[in-house]
Simulated scan of single mutants.
Amino acid sequence: MTTAALAPAVLLASPAFAETNEAAAPANPPAPTAPDHEAADAPGEDQAEQDRKTILAIIADPMASEYMKEAGHKAIADGPAAMRTFIETDQHRIRLDDYRIAITRLVNHAGPALKEGIKNLLRTDGLTLADLRHFLEVTQHELRDDDNKVEIARLTNTAGPALKEAARKALLGTPADRAAFLDKGRHLAQAEDDLVELARIDEGSDGPILSEAIHKLLIGPPTPAELRHFLEVTQHELRDQDNRVAIARIISVGGPELVKAGRAALAGTPADRAAFLLTGQHQAREKDNNAQQENDKNDGQQVQDGTGTGSGTGTKNDTGTGTGNTPDTGNTAVTPQGGSGSPLASTGAGDTTLVAGGAGTALVAGAGFLLAARMRRQASDS
């Protein structure tokens, strides 16, 4: 890569782990070094006038820092000797400081490799202007790519098939490919995996609230950010709402222990409600059944002893067949909807809407296919 090609990116500070790799340029990037002498603009022009024009050219450069501009104006105001000192000495010293400041600012958006490279550079004694310029124009981008490789490899640890494949291609590609993957590509690939996960959830869910929300989401069609938020946040909220409805239905026909446990779950956390549906309801129902059996046993013993509530003649004319405490089976088929399953991997997608071009069209088509399959399944069940 030539110096000219690198120049626009000299002070770009694209984060290695940010969702975008756009640069954050320092406010006052270093200006090119001006020569100590310039040819006279006109025959007979004195040295002071030449120096004044040289300084004006230096401070007029778009990349000149504010400190460079202030020092140049001051040199012009202080006269010929000050202008000569500025051209021969001060401008180079100021430019070294500007490069150091620009490199230091890169730390704010740097990954581990770039941070370590900056630290080592600034600890080095006797740095020249060429050393600092090479770091800004070449080395920082090499270190940034090293950080990108590490980040992409980290993403694959918890990725689905589509994201893993996209990450593999990025790792085999160019630095630009890796930057593009971290900027947008990973979110589009993650969306493909999220559609598959959404289909799995919809297939296993028997909660009407969650099921209806999935249906509405697919009609959207959803963006990658909307899919990610639904899977990471919304589905758990809706699952808990379905759990509340299921618990209320179960305890409406339950015995004392079942009602007690159900009310405690409703007053507790989402995890409490999921645990009740998974195991708690069955444990409470068993207690109610045991209590009923004990009551039936006692009633039968009273009849045999002639101490029951029959005719009072001491005969066994009380059959003890009361039905006041028949155990209720409740909805034992309710599946816990929120207490199990591994957490979804987060890639830091944020709320950025990333559907664009062909990749966005593919995502829309995927959502449409999933919705069509869902509707066919509902039709076959009805």
Rank of each mutant, 00 (worst) to 15 (best):
T3E: 15
A7E: 13
P8W: 10
L11A: 12
F17T: 10
F17Y: 10
T20L: 13
E22V: 05
A23K: 00
A23S: 08
P26Q: 06
A27Y: 03
N28G: 10
T33I: 15
H37E: 11
A40W: 06
A40T: 09
D41A: 15
Q47F: 05
A48V: 03
Q50H: 05
R52Y: 02
R52N: 02
T54L: 15
D61Q: 10
D61R: 08
M63G: 03
S65E: 03
E70C: 00
H73Q: 11
K74A: 11
A77P: 03
M83E: 14
T85V: 08
I87T: 11
E88D: 07
T89F: 02
D90Y: 00
D90S: 10
R93V: 14
I94D: 03
I101F: 09
R105D: 13
L106R: 02
A113P: 00
T124V: 05
G126E: 03
T128F: 04
L129K: 01
R133T: 09
H134M: 06
E137K: 03
T139I: 09
A153R: 14
P161L: 01
R168A: 15
P175H: 03
F181G: 09
F181D: 06
L182S: 07
D183N: 13
L188W: 03
Q190K: 02
A191F: 04
E192A: 10
A199G: 14
I201V: 15
G204Y: 02
G207A: 05
G207P: 04
L210G: 12
S211K: 15
K216P: 06
K216I: 11
P221R: 09
P222R: 02
P222S: 06
H236E: 04
E237Q: 13
R244C: 02
I247N: 05
A248Y: 00
S252N: 12
G255W: 01
E257D: 08
A265L: 04
L266F: 10
A274F: 08
A274W: 08
T279F: 08
Q283I: 14
R285C: 10
D296P: 00
N298Y: 01
N298L: 13
G300P: 00
Q304R: 10
S311W: 00
G320P: 02
T321F: 01
T323R: 10
T323V: 14
G324F: 09
P327D: 08
N331Q: 12
T332W: 11
V334Y: 01
P336C: 03
Q337A: 10
Q337N: 08
L344V: 12
L344M: 11
A345Y: 05
A349R: 00
T353Q: 11
G358V: 13
A359K: 11
G360Q: 09
A372K: 12
R374P: 06
R376L: 11
S380I: 07
S380L: 12
S382M: 07
